[in-house]
Computed example of a mutant assay.
Amino acid sequence: MKKLVSALGLSFAAVPLFAGALAFEPVAPEGLDATAEQMVEALQAGMPAQMAAFEAQGFGSYGAIAVPKGVELKPELLASVANHESAEAARIAVLDACSELTGAECTVIGLIVPAGN
């Protein structure tokens, strides 16, 4: 079962697979124009500060964040998933979720992992 956190457009499994400190690992996006890359860099820079809020809400890792390629980036087009069994499973799930949300090809911009991983 998934629940949607509508304010951020994030999809999380109902029961965390990992309970503990989270960390954000930025991933170099592929196929974005210069403007989109700058927007992604700003988003990535702010994500580590968001991990405590995710933890406080009971969310765990592994997760991923993706954006669509070739479209104007807007907050509502950000796709995220969490509470997967591995970083690779989260990567696959977020690309599917992003494509479904936007109808476009997507690229991963970050992973949510256990801190110290």
Rank of each mutant, 00 (worst) to 15 (best):
Gly46Val: 00
Leu22Gly: 01
Glu55Pro: 01
Gly31Trp: 06
Thr107Ser: 14
Ala90Gln: 08
Val27Tyr: 09
Gln44Val: 00
Ala14Glu: 14
Val27Cys: 11
Ile109Gln: 06
Leu111Ser: 07
Ser86Tyr: 01
Ala53Trp: 14
Arg91Leu: 09
Ala89Asn: 04
Glu88His: 07
Val40Asp: 02
Gly63Trp: 10
Ala87Ile: 06
Leu10Arg: 13
Val40Tyr: 01
Ile92Glu: 15
Gly58Asp: 12
Pro26Trp: 04
Ile112Thr: 12
Ser11Asp: 10
Val81Phe: 00
Gly58Leu: 04
Met39Ala: 06
Val81Ile: 08
Glu76Lys: 07
Ala53Thr: 14
Val67Thr: 04
Met51Asp: 06
Glu105Asn: 11
Ser11Leu: 12
Ser99Ala: 12
Ala87Gly: 14
Gln50Cys: 09
Ser11Phe: 01
Leu8Lys: 06
Ala89Met: 04
Gln50Asp: 13
Phe54Val: 00
Glu105Leu: 09
Lys69Phe: 07
Ala104Gln: 15
Val113Glu: 14
Ser61Gly: 15
Ala64Glu: 02
Ala56Pro: 03
Val94Met: 04
Glu88Arg: 10
Ala45Pro: 04
Ala19Val: 13
Leu4Lys: 04
Gly116Asp: 05
Ala42Cys: 01
Ala97Leu: 13
Ala64Tyr: 00
Ala21Val: 00
Asn83Cys: 14
Pro29Glu: 13
Gly63Gln: 12
Ala23Gln: 11
